[in-house]
Design a protein around this nucleic acid. Structure first.
Lengths: 346, 346
DNA sequence: GTTAGCACTCGGCAGCGTTGAGTGCTAACA
DNA sequence: TGTTAGCACTCAACGCTGCCGAGTGCTAAC
């Protein structure tokens, strides 16, 4: 499909997409000849535009309006025409400075990075913390809250702290708890959560374990603690910035946007999809996803350290997004965060 | 001022406020006589309304529209006329069920409670976690991330977990860290953070401490860890619900609302104000606060256990809020959360 | 293959009168 | 003196109309 376009058509499509990105209004044939030096008359451009419309790259909202690129048009633009510019020094340093503070904890970094991405792009920043099960075990601690209830604190290699409350039938005193955590920390440090889970269930099945009461308790406790997936944390920042975009000027569109951004589950599901991919990923409209993302585009990238711990960050905006700007922002940010994570574990 | 109103004027003011609450539209004299049995003609009601307007309880958006209660009018209504109804069994059980799960950690409870309050009230739920310095020390743990950087995990009596990264010049090995945390946990458990801080600075000043190297390190480490205030966590839920309210139907109002809800700092500052008060607090419009809260009302209450740990929850909505419904919701929820917190520490 | 010209379409906007809800004033009434 | 009916007046909201301009598709000429 991409091959069908000759150079002139490509140029015109590119011009339309770019004009539309900057103006948010249907682009007419005259506007194109005025703004670009094609040495073509509006009439000729119209002919080309009619062809492009037939091919599905453009559509017109009504008879006497200009053309708007379709999702397919944007897709083609991104795949074949888009020239990604480098970030300016100013942008790079703004991004770097946003976590110049080396003593920031991971949560703060993620929140801050979302804000900066949003501020630079004028769209909405999304950051999803590394998944619990993609992290590497570093340390576990138990705190007794009341008789049967234990607070489990889990720290990953990358400094991610998660906690959970579990019911423990046994009444363990502080000393025993300490012994248990010491034992676990010795046994499990450096393993990925998957490995930890495997190891735990394997050991629990070994019969000899039954004779060592403490060890058995340790195993069943940590099993309970690591059992189910902790729900992912997601940071959304800059919703109000995005409301300034003309596509969200109507109350209905605003409501829809806020609803979308408020349903963390949907966002998590979306970001989850790019977990397995490498580099920058682009989702346009509802095209590549079954979920209702109509009208939005999502640009994501993963961040990680060498030891797993994969998180995802990105920017969500209107389909008419300034891709040439947002893509490098997301790309550079993901790299930066990865680097920070690695420096942290050293 | 309140005394100046005779019974008839009170009845009419009450009728206007309630009609306005349910309709969101200016209330006219005929509408009142139609909807209520005052045995008065519209003309008489008009005279009374003119008086109420002069007194500052009502205003009219333009000549030929009905009257709208002013902030002062709402204030009078709440102070003198409002009859708070009890929650229905259904509402009470919905609230109770929202944290029936005993193994929920505090963060999840707060998030869930915000959602439920929002869902019941149709406005936006706000929940602010207990302030770091209002909590009672339970346990502290150190995790080494890289050479000079330590992750400090702090657990309060109420099960609140906070973490922070500090720079530690000294290179301490795991064993020393463990000793330090053991020492601190023995010394500090059960003290409020204020007490902890006092104790630490007092001990640091004692000269004899200097001879005990480990103890000195322990003290300076925990000083660094507890030094500055951790920023409060705040949970905002149900923004999109509130957008359904007619006062936010215009794009400008929507943007303003989202901006307000997105600026966590402002919200924290607002909720902070009710920290010292007891019971349900009501802020109307910008009346009682210097911050721009124009057009919004805020109903808050604190939750706590016996050992301090004061958090704040509430509902923010338009001034034209269904106070008789929202006040008991906020009140009951705060009590419930307090009870849950106390059960947790037992 | 490209271009100029032309008739046609259609959303947006300003102007206009109508409608209806509501007010304030006045005069009459109990 | 307090209450009420009547009346003239105000003003936002709504729908209608006609105009404007941007843009298109088609056709014929270059």
């Amino acid at each position: 499909m991409a091959e069908e376009l000759n150079e002139r058509s490509q140029n015109i499509l590119e011009a339309i997409v770019e004009d539309y990105i900057s103006s948010a209004e249907p682009v007419g044939s005259r506007a194109i000849t005025r703004r670009h030096d094609f040495n073509l008359s509006p009439a000729t451009v119209r002919n080309v535009m009619a062809d492009l419309e037939e091919m599905g790259f453009l559509c017109s909202p009504h008879t006497s309006a200009g053309r708007i690129p379709t999702a397919q048009g944007f897709q083609y633009y991104i795949d074949s025409l888009l020239q990604i510019r480098d970030l300016s020094k100013d942008e790079k340093s703004r991004l770097r400075n946003s976590y110049r503070f080396s003593s920031m904890k991971l949560e703060d970094i993620m929140q801050e990075v979302g804000k900066v991405m949003s501020g630079l792009s004028k769209y909405t920043g999304l950051v999803m913390a590394p998944k619990f099960s993609s992290t590497v075990f570093r340390q576990i601690e138990f705190v007794r809250l009341s008789k049967g209830r234990l607070l489990v604190i889990y720290v990953s290699e990358s400094g991610l702290v998660q906690n959970k409350i579990i019911d423990a039938d046994q009444t363990l005193d502080d000393r025993q708890l300490e012994q248990i955590s010491n034992y676990l920390n010795k046994e499990l440090t450096g393993l990925s959560i998957q490995e930890v889970r495997k190891k735990l269930s394997a050991e629990l099945q070994e019969e000899r374990v039954l004779y060592d009461r403490l060890r058995k308790q340790a195993l069943s406790l940590s099993c309970a603690a690591l059992q189910d997936e902790v729900e992912n944390q997601i940071y959304v920042s800059g919703a109000s910035l995005m409301l300034e975009q003309p596509e969200f000027s109507s109350p209905q569109q605003m409501k829809r946007l806020i609803q979308t951004l408020e349903s963390k589950k949907l966002l998590i599901e979306l970001l989850d999809r790019s977990q397995n991919a490498q580099g920058v990923q682009i989702f346009i409209g509802s095209q590549s996803s079954c979920i209702d993302l109509e009208g939005y585009s999502l640009i994501t990238s993963n961040f990680s350290n060498q030891k797993g711990a994969i998180g995802t960050l990105g920017v969500i905006g209107p389909v008419r997004m300034d891709y040439s700007q947002v893509i490098p922002i997301v790309d550079f940010t993901a790299q930066l965060v990865s680097r920070v994570l690695e420096r942290e574990i050293e």
